[in-house]
Simulated assay, not measured.
Amino acid sequence: MKKLVLSTALLLGLGAAQTAQAQAALLLGRLVGIGVSSAIGASRSAKLTPEQKAAQQQAAAQNLANQAAAERNAAGWAAPTELVMHRTPAAQLPKQAAEQITTLEAQLDACHAAMLASPTGPVCPPEQRAAIQQAAMGVARAKPGFDLHPYQQEMAYYMAEDARRQQAAAPSAPAK
């Protein structure tokens, strides 16, 4: 099971980082990989209290966000310029992962709704990112060969929009 999840995360993280979309997919693949290893570590520490588990998950989500920002800045990451929402029609959902795919799509829909609700508010807060990451891991576990690339691209767009909004909200330094 662990090899399956790790190999899926590795496959998600592979790809040339020559285009902005490839870089976004690589970034999200790494985030999923980090989340998978966090989930494995969390399953090994079954003796933690619910409060400790919640604090650990929140710290892991914050760490993922910090690492993603650092990687984007270091790689000269270019944000996807257009939003492409991919939704699998109900008739085409694979039986093994239908519930997990529906959950992932619902999480992405929540980000889309937040983006449309406010021109300056957060699009995808860290808790939402963690939920999307868990949903993607659920899909990878339920249907290992399922193509998560369209969902990765959509998530990359939301992350880029969040970053753009944060930059716009940050006061610029006064010129001297």
Rank of each mutant, 00 (worst) to 15 (best):
M1H: 08
M1D: 08
K2T: 05
K3G: 09
V5C: 06
L10E: 06
L11T: 02
L11G: 06
L11E: 02
L11H: 10
G15D: 08
A17T: 10
Q18L: 00
T19P: 04
Q21N: 07
Q21P: 06
A22Y: 00
A25I: 02
G29I: 01
L31F: 08
V32K: 03
G33F: 00
G33N: 09
G35V: 01
G35R: 04
S37M: 12
A39I: 05
I40D: 07
R44A: 14
S45M: 08
K47D: 15
L48A: 06
P50F: 03
E51M: 03
K53A: 07
Q58A: 09
A59C: 07
A61G: 07
A61N: 03
N63W: 07
N63T: 02
A69Q: 12
A70R: 14
A74N: 09
G76Q: 00
A78C: 01
P80H: 12
T81M: 04
E82D: 11
E82W: 06
L83C: 10
L83R: 13
V84A: 13
M85T: 15
R87S: 09
P89V: 10
P89C: 06
A91L: 09
A91Y: 01
L93S: 13
K95W: 00
A97S: 14
A97W: 06
T102A: 12
L104I: 05
Q107G: 02
Q107D: 14
L108I: 11
D109W: 04
D109M: 06
D109E: 11
A113N: 04
M115Q: 05
S118K: 07
P119I: 00
G121D: 15
P122M: 11
P125Q: 12
P126R: 12
E127A: 14
E127M: 12
Q128V: 01
A130G: 03
A131R: 15
A131V: 08
Q133R: 13
A135G: 14
M137G: 05
G138N: 15
G138F: 11
R141F: 00
A142Y: 13
A142R: 08
P144G: 10
G145V: 09
D147F: 12
H149I: 15
H149N: 13
P150C: 02
P150E: 09
P150R: 12
Y151D: 12
Y151Q: 12
Y151I: 05
Q152L: 13
E154D: 08
E154W: 07
A156E: 05
A156F: 05
Y157P: 04
D162I: 06
R164Y: 10
Q166L: 15
Q166T: 03
A170P: 01
S172M: 11
K176N: 07
